[in-house]
Amino acid sequence: MKYIIFLLVCSLGLPAAAESSDGLLVMQRRGEILGWEGVGRIDMPGGLCTGVLIGPDIVLTAAHCVAGRSARDRITFRAGYRNGGSMADRRVARIAVAPGYHASSGGLIRSDMIVHDVALLRLAAPISSAEANPFKLFDGVSSGDAVSVVSYGRGREEVLSRQPDCAVTGRFRDGLMSFDCNVTFGSSGAPVFVRDQGRMRILSLISAGTDLGSGHSTAYGMSLPEVVSGLMRELTNADSQPRISAGARRVSVGQRMTGNGARFVRP
């Protein structure tokens, strides 16, 4: 079987955001991000990912974005980041990584590992509802395959971009999903939204993908409720010292884990 290759962690120092992209609504003005402030940029030394608030001090993102960070790393969540400013900036105080996630040597990741590519970030201080509102997870049976993605990415890392109309193209074993959404480097951890009774809920996260720039890209994500519930329990019960438990691998900023940004998917 061949590998599907898609590097989704974005390196910093890339060109400024483009004015427009096919199928994307680029949120250049302050009013355009209203209601989406809970989606933000996760800034790390040498790179960035996308994350989303699911509680006042809890950010949901992809595990591979935050694995392998050293004691000198300063990880910051920037809610509603736009052109150098944000609704709120918060340092990350604690990281919880799904227990099934393991970074392979060389940055390889199989499709069965994508379903575990989930992490929660505990912020050093809560973000108030006046600054940004959290989103809820979708925990039900989808009545259709229409979804939307809100993310940062290479060439548009200074502003949020939203693709309001893409679709679930496949549902596989253990909660693996595929999408035809327009994602790129930096879109790791981006929320995949579904509309539920008039409100946007988080169906999945962007983890990996293939055929970037070909016009026929496929993105991959996972089902969230079960893994997020386990991680939330671990953060709620966490004491001041990091420890290994059956619920999740918890890593305080400063602990080292193996892994890097390259994502390779074996279908």
Rank of each mutant, 00 (worst) to 15 (best):
S104F: 12
I127F: 04
M113Q: 06
I114D: 08
L108M: 14
H116M: 06
S128N: 08
A103D: 02
V97A: 05
L123E: 01
A93H: 00
D117E: 08
A98G: 09
D112V: 06
M113I: 00
A125P: 15
H102L: 07
V97R: 09
S111L: 04
A96Y: 05
A98L: 07
S111W: 08
L120C: 10
H116R: 01
A119C: 13
G107C: 01
V97F: 01
D112K: 05
I114H: 11
I114Y: 09
A124V: 13
I95V: 12
A124K: 10
G100K: 02
V118G: 02
V97W: 04
D112N: 07
S105A: 13
P99R: 07
S104Q: 15
A93W: 00
D117K: 15
L120A: 05
G106S: 09
L108Q: 11
H116A: 11
G106Y: 06
S111N: 11
G107A: 03
S111V: 07
S104Y: 13
H102S: 02
H116I: 08
V115K: 01
A119D: 06
L123F: 00
R94F: 13
S111K: 10
P99D: 02
R110M: 04
A93T: 00
D117W: 10
V115P: 03
D117S: 12
V97T: 10
